[in-house]
Design a protein around this nucleic acid. Structure first.
Ligand SMILES: [Mn+2]
Ligand SMILES: [Mn+2]
Ligand SMILES: [Zn+2]
Ligand SMILES: [Zn+2]
Lengths: 136, 136
DNA sequence: TCATAATTTATATTCATTCTAATTAAAATG
DNA sequence: CATTTTAATTAGAATGAATATAAATTATGA
């Protein structure tokens, strides 16, 4: 993903093109890989490249990205810290209980022939599976 | 669940029978209902009954109950606070996105004919589904 | 270029949770 | 029952993640 692509990505999501946003968008989206990151991880990764960004700005930016639909906030495992997922499509996760690492599982890796009905007065809007795995 | 039952429950899990533990065990297990509670909720509930217990003790006790297998710690939704589940059997959850409320879904409410294989070098130890629901 | 509104940032603040260390209480022992 | 031992409780301090504040900076477009 080129500088221009990052610029377009931000612009097309109504996000002003600022240094912290360009750096973070490049870090998170440039290679198209799925990532599950914390604010601290992102701040450290930028710092290692010499691109210091205030931690408050990292939080602000990640939250803006969520609001813009570029990131999704996930809250499975590791209670106590927010994790941001670069994959905003519906999908599931492997959770490695040794390392805490999350890995994507495609939506269609599960096929159910029985699902619970929604409780009265409610509708199902989403479902996601967390598969806990253990290295052996 | 009588006082004696609570005493036996604690004793059989190698937990000394202290006032905070009796109060919390009664609050959480006496009526056999499934509950998903935070430490703060439990502390408030005890205080309302006139059974003040220090918040640190509530945390200590809930964590002891988890270690003893009386509670399970769940970490879906509402990142930033621990939720303790009185149902320690494998099961799934409805998550009401309006209220944040969690409701149990029995393990057998899902039947699948396709599940992902575990990644190389790992085995699947557990899987759980969070079904997000919205009142309509 | 200039004006305006948005963003960044250092810092303070909030909130959930854990830690510390002194006190209290439960169980075990004689 | 009295004593000893060991574990649990607690107030208050400390930690750590995340947000709020408010002053300085910057992006954008007029
Ligand atoms: Mn993912
Ligand atoms: Mn449950
Ligand atoms: Zn740009
Ligand atoms: Zn008892």
């Amino acid at each position: 993903m080129s500088d221009l692509d990052v610029h377009n990505l931000l612009a097309s999501h109504n996000l002003r093109c600022t240094r912290p946003r360009v750096k973070l968008a490049t870090l998170l989206f440039a290679d198209g890989r799925d990532r599950h990151v914390t604010a601290e991880w992102a701040a450290d990764a930028l710092a290692k490249e010499g691109d210091e960004v205030a931690l408050a700005t990292v939080y602000n930016t990640l939250n803006s990205f969520v609001e813009a639909g570029l990131l999704r906030q996930i809250s499975c495992q590791e209670a106590g810290r927010q994790v941001f997922d670069t994959n905003v499509e519906p999908h599931h996760h492997f959770y490695n209980e040794q390392t805490g690492e999350l890995t994507d599982v495609p939506q269609n890796a599960f096929r159910f022939y029985k699902m619970p009905a929604a409780p009265d007065g409610a509708e199902i809007v989403d479902w996601q599976v967390t598969v806990t795995i253990r290295p052996h």
